[in-house]
C-alpha cells in the first residue's frame, strides 16, 4: 500500500496544482463589476489547496514507510498479469468497455447487447480441456440467455420507457 499511496499522493499533488493554475486563470469578471470574492475560481482553488495538503501528507507518510522505493520490474508486471483474478479483471474491462464504446452505436442496440452477453458468458465459462458436450451445453445456454436478455432489455426500454435506443 505505501507504494500505491506514494503514487496516488503524487497524482493528487499534480491534480491540485493543475486545478490551482486553472482557477487562477479563470476570469475575474471585472467588467461585470462583480464582488471580487465571488469569482468563479475561488472555490476550486480552495478545494485544490486542501487536496494539495492531503496529497503532500500522503506522499510524506508513504516515504516514511518506504513507499518511494517503487522497484518496478517487467517481471513483477508479468507476475501481476498472470494472476487469474487480474486476468479476469482485464477481460471484464476489455469486454465491457469494448461493448459500451465500440459496439453500442455501431451495431443495432439489440445485436450489440446480444453479442456482448454471449461473448462474456462463453469467454468466462470456457475452460481448457472441456469436453465438447459440456461446451455445447454452455454455448446453447449462453445463446439463449443472450437472446432473452437482449430482447427483454431492448423491448422494456424502447416500448415501456420510450427511450430512443442508440
Amino acid at each position: 500500500m505505501p507504494k500505491a499511496d506514494f503514487l496516488t499522493g503524487l497524482a493528487l499533488i499534480g491534480l491540485s496544482l493543475y486545478v490551482l493554475i486553472e482557477s487562477w486563470r479563470m476570469p475575474r469578471l471585472e467588467h461585470l463589476k462583480i464582488h471580487p470574492l465571488s469569482v468563479p475560481g475561488l472555490v476550486p482553488a480552495f478545494l485544490a489547496s486542501v487536496i494539495l495538503i492531503f496529497g503532500t501528507a500522503l506522499v510524506i507518510r508513504s516515504i516514511l514507510r518506504g513507499g518511494h522505493r517503487l522497484g518496478f520490474t517487467l517481471e513483477g508486471f508479468r507476475q501481476i498479469l498472470n494472476k487469474p483474478g487480474n486476468r479476469r479483471l482485464l477481460l471484464t474491462a476489455i469486454l465491457s468497455i469494448g461493448y459500451a464504446v465500440l459496439l453500442i452505436g455501431t451495431l443495432p442496440y439489440w445485436l450489440a447487447t446480444g453479442i456482448f452477453i454471449l461473448l462474456f458468458i462463453i469467454l468466462f465459462e470456457w475452460k481448457q480441456g472441456m469436453d465438447s458436450a459440456t461446451w455445447r451445453r454452455y454455448l446453447i445456454s449462453g445463446i439463449l440467455i443472450a437472446i432473452l436478455a437482449s430482447t427483454t432489455i431492448t423491448l422494456v426500454f424502447e416500448r415501456l420507457f420510450l427511450v430512443a435506443l442508440p
Partner: peptide
C-alpha cells in the same frame, strides 16, 4: 454481463 448492460443503458 446483464448488470453491465443495464449500467450502460
Amino acid at each position: 454481463p446483464i448488470v453491465f448492460v443495464l449500467c450502460a443503458i
